[in-house]
Design a protein around this nucleic acid. Structure first.
Length: 158
DNA sequence: TAGGCCATCTGGTCCT
DNA sequence: AGGACCAGATGGCCTA
């Protein structure tokens, strides 16, 4: 007795089912739209996470007051400089520790770090502050302008 | 009103 | 296939 041939089989082989062939154009469109909406949602969440991380970073930096909230790019640039300033402070303290009372220097470093922006000016290459900048640091302009009458200008990265 | 900043959408690319 | 990441486009809001 001859068995009925499966429509999926041709010459003994299983016919590959094309997903496109089984879906009408309207269904494909619908699926595309659903995928797009989901992707948009993920992208939105991703950006919210990114902004959350940026906000956390902003909170770790010296504050300028709510009305002077740093923009995203300013936050990143300032964080860059702030880390550099802290590193320099630490280095200076370590150097001077041999000559001076270590406890006093630690207090100085702590106050410089905590007071933040205004003290970063003290660490710029042109300042009277005695230290020698590392060569790679000369690629940047580390100067800040914290004049209260003017807009805050972070350094410029070329 | 121009320019800066931002959120969101979108399509492309890479990776798992 | 689907998710993550990215960059370009777009439109809204705000300020000088």
């Amino acid at each position: 007795m001859e068995t009925e041939r499966s429509p999926d089989k041709e010459n003994g082989r299983k016919k590959r089912r094309s997903s496109k062939a089984t879906k009408s154009p309207s269904v494909v469109q619908k699926l595309k739209k659903i995928r797009r909406v989901k992707a948009n949602d993920r992208e939105r969440n991703r950006m919210h996470n990114l902004n959350g991380a940026l906000e956390t970073l902003r909170d770790r930096l010296p504050q300028f007051g709510e009305e002077n909230k740093l923009t995203k790019i300013e936050t990143l640039r300032f964080a860059h400089n702030y880390i550099w300033a802290l590193s320099e402070t630490l280095r200076m303290v370590q150097n001077q520790q041999l000559q001076m009372d270590g406890q006093k220097n630690l207090q100085l470093a702590a106050s410089l770090a905590l007071q933040g922006p205004k003290n970063i000016n003290k660490l710029t290459p042109n300042s009277p502050c005695s230290y020698s900048p590392q060569p790679q640091l000369q690629d940047y302009n580390y100067s800040f302008n914290f004049d209260c009458q003017q807009q805050y200008h972070p350094y410029h990265l070329e």
